[in-house]
Amino acid sequence: MTDHPATIDPRDAVLGRSRVTDTPELEAFYDDLARRNAGAFWKRANAIEPWEPETRYRPTLWRYADMRAMCLRAIDLVKPEEAGRRVVTLLNDSDAGRANVAVCGWLFSGMQAMRPGEITPAHKHTASAHRFIMEGKGAYTVVDGHPITLGANDYVLTPNGCWHDHGVTADGEVSIWQDGLDIPLMNCLETNFYAVYEQPAQTAAFPSNDLPLSYGGAGLRPEGVGAWDKPYSPVMVYRWDAVRDALWNLAKVSGGTPFDGHMMRYANPLTGGWALQTMGAHMQMLPGGFRGQAHRHTGNVVYNVAGGRGYSIIGGKRFDWQTHDIFCVPAWTWHEHVNLDLNEEAFLFSFNDFPVMEALGVRIEEPYSDHGGHQPA
């Protein structure tokens, strides 16, 4: 018997699940265990070992128009050198999201806006980070002395343990990007360290864009360059034009998947694996009029609409989206995507915790088999 009989799952009434009926003698035994900082496993076994994953997070959508306005207000209210990082945090609409400062699962996300001439002071941390540029001109980052310029819909890495600062050149424009970090995971594992650089910003130690120019050629590997020995991708930034063209080329020879249309992984070209160790990212293209089938998987995904308009049905609820709206799909939640434009593609950038799921051997996926693969909404 569980602590809450009203919530008993009928599936638990089988051999192999906890079915103990408490007695006064057992109650006294539980009290004795508690006084010794111990407990009876069968009292909570069914709750802590569910039949399938039970997410504590909710599908949540953030409108770009609303969040952009909040970021611009933050510019007027707070100086970046005082905030450290002037980020507007995206909090999942759940108690777990607010408690863990999480966008979904053990992932953090926020939006950052910077004026021309502003910088985020240089720092480093255990948490891995990556950024998706949403608008602006003149944005840049410096990662361990490597300067990288950034444009709209570019995806850039700031791997764990690397010194990094970012800003907007004096002749640029107000720039906005989405941050993604694994801060909640690092805090859960109690492994988070943070340090600030000895100067407000790094002095560039390499030519501008040296890493993407060296390693960014598809299927090409530079000779005469020192061997790359880092556990993350040397490309560092994935340019929007190249990613978009890769999707268009894929569509010429492939029908894509019934769930995600045409999809490209942001990969480490030296290994073919994920660009970062703990977070992965994709760009997918939904053809005009695309109506995807539903599926679910372990692992959490955060989406940013890189272009187009449509909707997603997540856990049976419809979420309409347009360019640069952000939404999330919690672990083991049914979801499907629809492109409302019959003649133009829609593009969805997303990041996830799939590398962690794969490293632990628990990345599992299944299709929705009822109603022709579509959820009732």
Rank of each mutant, 00 (worst) to 15 (best):
M186H: 04
F193K: 09
Y194Q: 12
Y197E: 04
Y197A: 14
E198C: 00
Q199M: 12
Q199H: 14
A201V: 14
A201F: 13
Q202D: 10
P207A: 15
D210E: 12
D210Y: 13
G216S: 06
G217K: 10
G219Q: 09
G219S: 08
L220F: 09
L220C: 09
P222G: 09
E223Y: 10
E223N: 13
G224H: 08
V225H: 10
A227C: 01
K230I: 01
K230L: 14
K230G: 00
Y232I: 02
P234L: 02
V235A: 08
M236A: 10
M236R: 11
V237W: 01
R239K: 15
D241G: 07
D241T: 09
A242H: 10
R244A: 04
R244K: 15
R244C: 05
K252H: 11
K252P: 01
G256I: 08
G256N: 11
G256W: 06
P258K: 07
M263K: 15
P269K: 07
T271L: 10
G273F: 03
G273P: 04
G273M: 04
G280S: 03
G280L: 12
A281Q: 10
H282D: 12
Q284H: 09
M285F: 06
L286N: 03
P287V: 10
A294Q: 08
H295Q: 10
H295E: 11
H297M: 11
T298A: 08
Y303R: 12
Y303V: 07
A306P: 10
G308S: 02
R309A: 15
Y311N: 02
S312Y: 01
I314P: 04
I314K: 03
G315C: 06
G316N: 13
K317P: 00
K317D: 05
K317N: 09
R318Y: 02
D320M: 00
W321R: 06
